[in-house]
Design a protein around this nucleic acid. Structure first.
Lengths: 372, 372
DNA sequence: TCCGATTTGTTCGTATGTATG
DNA sequence: GCATACATACGAACAAATCGG
């Protein structure tokens, strides 16, 4: 695979998939490519030759080499079954299965096949997967964006999906630059009601834990702040703890321990990015011999089955999960069909925003007045 | 048209069309063709290259160039990406994600695509899925059998997979009639060590909960019985509770409550089909105000993250999960490649049986002697 | 219409690497 | 180990088509 011509070939293919060329645009001449890659003309020709054979390029003697226009894919939808790609950030034990379950059942009932990919929270993998989707016949894509809080270097691939007429929708989060159709929660409101619930129960010293490489975490943090503002409770900066995916097993726990060890200003309430984190923090509280909810209240997020796995059933925010998976499947099927029928009806497909709801269980309690 | 390489190309093609070569017969070497047509080797290579591209010939390094057997009009494996189907019984929040995670990462690294299907524990769905796989181009199948304890009416489809040369392997369980290659745990031993652990801690009144529509449950039950036999502890038939998937949320809990309400012979140890069930039963114990492990010991199965989610960390049996997923992926890729190369080497692919190991945590304890 | 620069197409020679039998 | 066959790579030359001036 590490032959020179293959290197050149992959590099050119990558550029095409990244949308570096318009359809029918001329690519660099053989001479330029020779210099660019420091290889002989022969090598360049072999590389281009294969790409021509695979239908990515075409050559015109005396004129140049050009990018094929893949939007006029006549031969695409033949007898082969339709397939939808689902790209997730991580195949977690957590809310992911619920979403997939909803999507899979709808899609398979409607004669679609599910292709599953995981980026493992790595932008490079996302790129690889998008390349693979673009170079195959995929009819639609449901994607959970990787590191959605940051600028995404793969945006070109998304534009290329649009150009190639492959519809895609985003779930849970979205890249700001794209303004795609997406299915999300109102995460800001979610963070707000988590915090408001505690405030209304008399808590004033509330620690918030937020994963800030995803846009969800940032929005929930915003909600946390807004709730404090609304009820005119000052925020102690030490009470906002942000962490990245890689740190999720250590940083929040460590930071909580530090806060609990303080002599003054010991927190009475915890707002967690999700239930998974809440359970981790419960371990810390147990070690410190703090009783939930008597000594300290804790609010989770997602209403996953974890919320009911522990001894103290968690107060948490409801995540649509199944419903979201199914709605995503429905939406993408609609888009694919519209696409095929060339229906230019102006039926507008719009982003669905789910309203968060608090599920009150046993992990939160009105604060007793004799608290500091 | 009268380029030299075209002349050579047409000449060779004519010979093929005239039936000068048997299928898979070797044609003249490049060197011979050079002399025959008085052209350079490069020219010969260009001519042959086009014929290979058009599917008339295929080359084998070190061996020669051969005539394609066009009778086996396999339109299957063209440039299209290879795909592996993973069929699961249910997209659960439980150990399934770990298995998929292992499999997906290996497969995608090796350029395979994952098609995900779920039978939802329904034989009819399994049939539908197998039909879909057979009618498409799928290169291999990893399947977790549905209702493996019962006779499967879809066996013909599995035989058909074999006939169509689509390799498949089974994980977690298998249909007895098929004797397929599979990746399983030694579930009988698993049930044995669960029970033995309790027996060695002095427990004599041990309740076993087993899901008996899967072969795993039946084997674990067998292990439970064997352990009793070995240590010559009589089994109270009331202490074996079997249930089906549909009943998992109610029957075991109800039965446990009945057993705990009894005046005599109150159980001191619980052997659970899996961690998920163990957590459900913990709720019952909590309601009854029984402390784990002081009043009662409980053993889970699978060593899932649930084992560490609760307040009492579960003693449980280790399930390979990730490793199993990855091994399954490796195995199926091997089989697919063997298949493609028509390698009839007698490298035997064999069933892998994982040895269960007990992970001892806090949910089990030596029984105090003053127990009835 | 022709010229010349550019670009792809065809052909040859040569060398080295790697797999097969 | 050896000869044979295909695979990759470089260099050079000329042909044929295109395009702007």
């Amino acid at each position: 695979m590490q032959t020179k011509y293959n290197t050149v070939k992959q590099a050119i293919k990558s550029q095409i998939l990244a949308g570096a060329y318009e359809p029918n645009q001329k690519i660099s001449s053989e001479n330029e490519l020779m210099k660019e890659f420091s290889v002989s003309r022969h090598t360049v020709r072999v590389a281009i030759g294969e790409l021509v054979n695979e239908g990515w390029l075409y050559r015109e003697q005396g004129s140049g080499t050009f990018c094929t226009d893949r939007s006029i894919q006549e031969s695409r939808n033949q007898q082969s079954k339709k397939s939808i790609a689902i790209i997730t950030t991580y195949i977690s034990d957590y809310i992911f299965p619920s979403i997939i379950r909803g999507a899979e059942s709808y899609l398979s009932e409607n004669g679609y096949q599910v292709n599953l990919y995981s980026t493992n929270n790595d932008i490079e993998n996302e790129k690889r997967i998008l390349e693979s989707i673009l170079s195959q016949q995929t009819d639609g894509v449901i994607i959970e964006p990787t590191k959605s809080a940051f600028t995404n270097p793969n945006i070109n691939y998304y534009f290329n999906l649009e150009r190639t007429n492959i519809p895609y929708i985003m779930i849970n989060a979205f890249y700001d630059e794209l303004e795609p159709i997406c299915l999300i929660m109102d995460d800001e409101k979610g963070g707000f009601i988590q915090t408001e619930h505690l405030i209304k129960h008399g808590h004033k010293n509330i620690v918030g834990f937020f994963k800030t490489d995803d846009i969800q975490g940032i929005k929930r943090m915003k909600g946390y702040i807004k709730a404090h503002r609304k009820y005119q409770i000052p925020i102690n900066p030490k009470n906002i703890i942000s962490y990245y995916s890689e740190e999720k097993r250590t940083k929040p726990k460590d930071e909580l321990e530090i806060l609990l060890s303080a002599q003054t200003d010991v927190p009475t309430g915890l707002v967690c990015y999700n239930d998974e984190l809440a359970l981790l923090l419960l371990d810390v509280l147990r070690d410190k011999n703090l009783k939930v909810p008597n000594d300290i209240s804790i609010v989770g997020y997602d209403d996953s089955f974890l919320a009911e796995a522990s001894e103290v059933k968690l107060t948490t925010v409801k995540h649509p999960k199944n419903k979201m998976g199914e709605a995503a499947a429905e939406l993408i099927v609609d888009l694919v069909q519209k696409n095929n029928q060339n229906n230019k009806d102006n039926k507008e497909y719009e982003t669905i925003i789910y309203d968060p709801e608090l599920v009150i269980r046993k992990s939160t309690k009105k604060i007793s007045d004799d608290e500091t």
